[in-house]
């Protein structure tokens, strides 16, 4: 298990216990985090699990992920990631994930 904190654009924070092996997107859905839609279920088809993660431990976005982020609805920043592509491990304990402004 690892603790992950989700921060909404208005500053609201929710910290949850994340199961290792799951993706950050799956953890967010399981805990009802607002702002992560994950329409394609983690197939890298939709960019609706886009978040900002400023943490070296998560590695960097793959080429395919970058291509999807290119067309994300919210502002894309250097820290932009698709949370379906970040796998939870003990090493990510304390990770902070910022949600983008809603697109509508």
């Amino acid at each position: 298990m690892a603790k992950i904190t989700f921060v909404q654009p208005d500053g609201r924070r929710q910290t949850v216990e994340a199961e290792t092996g799951k993706s950050v997107m799956q953890v967010a859905l399981a805990h009802g985090i607002d702002g992560i839609l994950a329409e394609c279920g983690g197939a890298m088809m939709c960019a609706t699990c886009h978040c900002y993660v400023d943490d070296d431990r998560t590695g960097t976005a793959s080429e395919g992920e970058e291509d999807m982020l290119d067309c994300a609805e919210a502002e894309v920043r250097p820290t932009s990631r698709l949370t379906c592509q970040i796998k939870v491990s003990e090493a990510l304990d304390g990770l902070v994930v910022h949600l983008p402004e809603a697109d509508e």
């Binding site: 799951k22 799956q26 859905l29 399981a30 805990h31 009802g32 394609c40 279920g41 983690g42 197939a43």
Partner: peptide, 24 residues
Amino acid sequence: QRPPLSKTYMKTGDATILPLRPES
């Protein structure tokens, strides 16, 4: 979600990835 049934689920058998949202 149905799409993973013929993809990830078929490979792994992990049904916990399937619900669109938890009951809560």
